[in-house]
Amino acid sequence: MKKLIAGLVAAVLPLAATAAYPDRPVKLIVPWAAGGDTDNIFRPFAPLLQKHLGGTVVIANIGGASGTKGAKEAKDSPADGYTLYAVHDYIHSTYWTGVADVNYTDFEPICMLSSTASVLTASPKTPWHSLKDLIADAKKRPGQITVGATLGSTSHFFPALIEKTAGVKFKYVSYEGLAPRMNAILGGHVDLTDSNLTQKGKVEAGQLKFLGIATEKRNPEMKDVPTLKEQGINVVYDVNRGLMAPKGTPAAILGKLESSCQAAAKEPEFAKAMKLQGTDVRYMERKQYVSWLKKNDRLNQDLAKDLGLLKR
């Protein structure tokens, strides 16, 4: 009897849930510490999503293990639309470098939101004034220049690409997330790291050095930062962020989330907030995002192989 009731309840439950979605707060998992760049992008996004979704959106920072702890947590959450997951390109790289078994296929993509260009950043305690100085020095002391990176993630891939293009060798040290990396680089405990234009305040204060931005053209916000390309290193790299839900989330809920996401991403307020983060709004609807992810995953697989980091 009890089993029968339980069965009935289980059958009715999803229907009831869809009808009133969202009838309780939605948790948005950010798999990094508060104050990092992913957090900085999703913090202003959450209230806008909340406005269009018509239910409270609460950010939960679940950092650790190169961002895969939060990913696993999101993957194991019930697929009822009450858990969302803030993702970026690391989901591909951590999969192919063998950091974790979670892949983008474990989730239902909802929409892509933003794209942030990577900037090669050096500690103020280093002697280099340009990328050329760095590469000359790196050739003299292979494997001695330290790079703070979230291992297996985008902040590891970006310097690895430069390493490979320039034919030098760096030494990687685990500093997870942008916030701890900034501390280490301000104190000179690592020489180099990947960051982005959000850190321009620290450059103006002379606490950091931007050696080059990984875009095709210079950024209008910070015209005096040269691109890597014009300094002879042909590397273009950015980090793309989007929203996902656990696999098996009902289509009706995904549809609601997609339309709310679109409305939120189009708000002028979001564009303004992203500008402060040195980030471009790059909205993609669900379908487009899915095919983009597929392409990006192959790209990361090739990249991991090229860089000698492929572990699958």
Binding site: G35, D39, N40, R43, P44, M182, Q199, G201, E204, K272
Partner: peptide, 27 residues
């Protein structure tokens, strides 16, 4: 520094960024 000392200041840092304020040495 823009570095949270603990979980509580981490949330406050989040609040700063919501209001579009970049914390850091120049703050």
């Amino acid at each position: 520094f823009g570095i949270p000392g603990d979980a509580v200041t981490a949330v406050m840092l989040g609040a700063l960024t919501i209001h579009g304020i970049q914390s850091g040495p120049l703050f």
